[in-house]
Simulated scan of single mutants.
Amino acid sequence: MPKMQANQMRPGHVIEHEGQRWTVLKSQINTPGKGAAVIQVEMRNLRTGSKKDERWRTIDTVERLMTEEKEYDYLFADGDRLTLMDKESFEQIEVDSSLCGEAKQFLQEGMVLLVDLVEGEPVAIHLPQTVTLEVAQADPVVKGQTASSSYKPAILSNGAKTMVPPFVEAGDRIVVRTEDASYVERAKG
């Protein structure tokens, strides 16, 4: 298995640690006032689904498992289980929605997903970078608020919360990033 430095771990990577396979959910490098920098990693066990936080020195090495990417169509959800269809063979698979991470709130039927597989087993799901949704609710603009200075809270049609520019109102369709629910632009057309 190829080794990589711990500070190269990114969300979506799959590693072997203590004889088990883990998918990286979040990684953050912390540089304390004294001593060497460390990388704090939140990861999920692929077999059990349990989460764990682990720390490595940035100079430590970890074993990264090679993943294969494959496109699937998202069909529907049944509780925490997602049904996906292989775009080539039309074979359907069921996976746990936790493989999408925080982005699962943006799943839409018919959406094309990129699924990372390790030896044929789904380990992570990547949504498109942006989605278009309708603003269900937006706070009114406060008088004297300048357009450039501040965004206001809004709730999207899927229930996700985001911050939008003052000119965006309920009923508007906007483009948001699936990674962090941030506003990109007004939807065109």
Rank of each mutant, 00 (worst) to 15 (best):
P2R: 04
M4S: 00
M4H: 00
Q5P: 13
M9E: 06
M9C: 09
G12T: 10
V14D: 13
I15D: 11
E16S: 15
T23Q: 00
T23A: 00
V24S: 08
V24Q: 06
T31V: 13
T31A: 12
G33H: 14
A37Y: 08
I39A: 10
I39S: 11
M43H: 10
G49Q: 07
S50G: 10
D53Q: 11
R55W: 14
W56N: 04
D60R: 08
L65S: 15
M66S: 04
M66W: 04
E68R: 12
E71I: 08
Y74S: 04
Y74G: 07
L75P: 10
F76Q: 11
A77R: 12
A77K: 11
G79L: 07
G79R: 07
G79T: 08
G79I: 09
D80M: 01
K87Y: 06
F90P: 05
E91L: 12
E91T: 13
E91A: 14
I93C: 12
E94Q: 11
E94C: 10
D96K: 02
D96N: 07
S97K: 14
S97D: 14
S97G: 14
L99S: 07
G101K: 12
E102M: 10
K104F: 08
Q105F: 00
F106C: 07
G110E: 01
G110M: 01
G110R: 00
M111W: 03
L113W: 03
V115D: 03
D116V: 01
D116Q: 06
V118T: 05
V118E: 03
E119F: 13
G120H: 02
E121Q: 03
E121L: 04
P122Y: 02
V123N: 02
V123L: 03
A124F: 06
I125H: 06
I125M: 07
H126C: 06
H126F: 09
L127G: 03
L127A: 06
L127W: 11
T130C: 01
V131F: 04
V131D: 01
E134G: 12
V135E: 00
V135S: 00
Q137T: 15
Q137H: 12
Q137I: 14
V141K: 15
V142K: 05
G144K: 08
G144F: 14
S148G: 13
S149Y: 04
S149C: 02
S150C: 05
S150E: 02
Y151S: 06
K152R: 02
A154Q: 10
I155F: 05
L156T: 09
S157F: 05
A160L: 02
A160I: 02
K161P: 08
K161M: 14
P165A: 14
P165E: 12
A170S: 09
A170I: 07
R173A: 13
I174P: 06
V175D: 05
V175E: 09
T178Y: 06
E179W: 02
E179M: 03
S182G: 14
Y183D: 05
V184S: 08
R186I: 03
R186E: 07
G189N: 09
G189P: 08
